[in-house]
Simulated scan of single mutants.
Amino acid sequence: MQRIRKGDLVEVIAGKEKGKRARVLRVLQKTQRVVLERLTMVKRHTKPTQNNQGGILEKEGTIHLSNVMPVDPGTDKATRVKTIVKDGVRLRAGKSGTVIEAEKK
């Protein structure tokens, strides 16, 4: 089961963005990285095409999974995730026992 999913509220625990909170936009399983909303902004230089004007675009960069922790909704603190089984369904829960649900968009 995934520790962090798209839509989760996470706190950055290491790196230059340490202490900040953001929503997960994407989880890249192969490289074990996550893209967080409006954090680690990077500049991308793009060539003009028929569809695109080109120029310098700013977009979100990635952070390694080990540098983020989900926020426990019960205590509002960063927490490790444990799995619990309720009615035959595996759920993610924080240390307080509160179930962590990803925000639906």
Rank of each mutant, 00 (worst) to 15 (best):
V12E: 02
T79E: 11
D8W: 00
E58T: 14
G19I: 02
G7Q: 01
M69T: 02
L57N: 13
K86A: 08
V24T: 08
I100A: 03
V24E: 00
T98V: 14
G19Q: 00
K43W: 05
H64L: 07
R21Q: 15
K30E: 15
A22L: 10
A78R: 08
G61L: 13
L36A: 02
K82W: 01
R21S: 07
I56Q: 10
K30C: 05
N51M: 11
K20L: 05
K86M: 10
E37G: 01
R92H: 11
T75D: 09
I63V: 10
Q32P: 00
T49P: 02
I63E: 01
Q53A: 12
E103D: 13
K16M: 11
G74L: 13
G54I: 00
K104L: 14
G61W: 07
L57P: 00
Q50C: 01
I63R: 01
T31I: 05
L28A: 05
N52G: 12
I84C: 02
H45R: 15
L57A: 12
G61Y: 12
N67G: 09
T31P: 00
P73W: 03
K105E: 14
M69N: 08
K47T: 03
G97K: 15
K104Q: 12
V89Y: 06
R21C: 04
E103T: 14
G94H: 12
G94N: 11
T75F: 09
I13E: 00
R90D: 03
R44T: 09
L9C: 02
L91E: 13
K105M: 13
P48Y: 10
V24P: 01
K95G: 06
V89N: 09
D76H: 07
V10S: 11
Q50P: 05
R33Y: 09
G61K: 02
K95E: 15
R5P: 06
G61P: 03
K18P: 03
V27T: 04
V35I: 15
K95F: 07
V42H: 11
L28R: 11
S96I: 05
L9Q: 01
V85Q: 15
K18Y: 14
G94C: 15
A78S: 13
A102H: 02
R38V: 08
I13G: 10
V99D: 07
Q2K: 00
T98S: 11
A102Y: 03
A102Q: 04
E60A: 11
V12T: 08
T98G: 03
A14N: 06
L9N: 04
T62V: 04
T49L: 07
M69I: 03
H45N: 14
A102G: 10
A78Q: 14
K59A: 10
K77V: 01
V12G: 01
L36R: 04
V81N: 07
K86Q: 09
T79Y: 15
V34P: 00
P48E: 13
M69R: 15
R38P: 00
V68T: 03
L9R: 01
E17S: 10
H45K: 13
D72A: 07
M69V: 01
T83K: 11
V42M: 13
G15L: 06
L57K: 14
A102I: 05
E58F: 12
R44W: 08
K77A: 08
V81R: 03
E17W: 05
R26D: 04
K6R: 15
R23C: 03
H64A: 14
K18G: 08
H45P: 04
D76K: 06
L9E: 02
R38G: 04
Q2E: 13
E60D: 11
M1N: 08
K82Q: 13
K20S: 06
T49E: 10
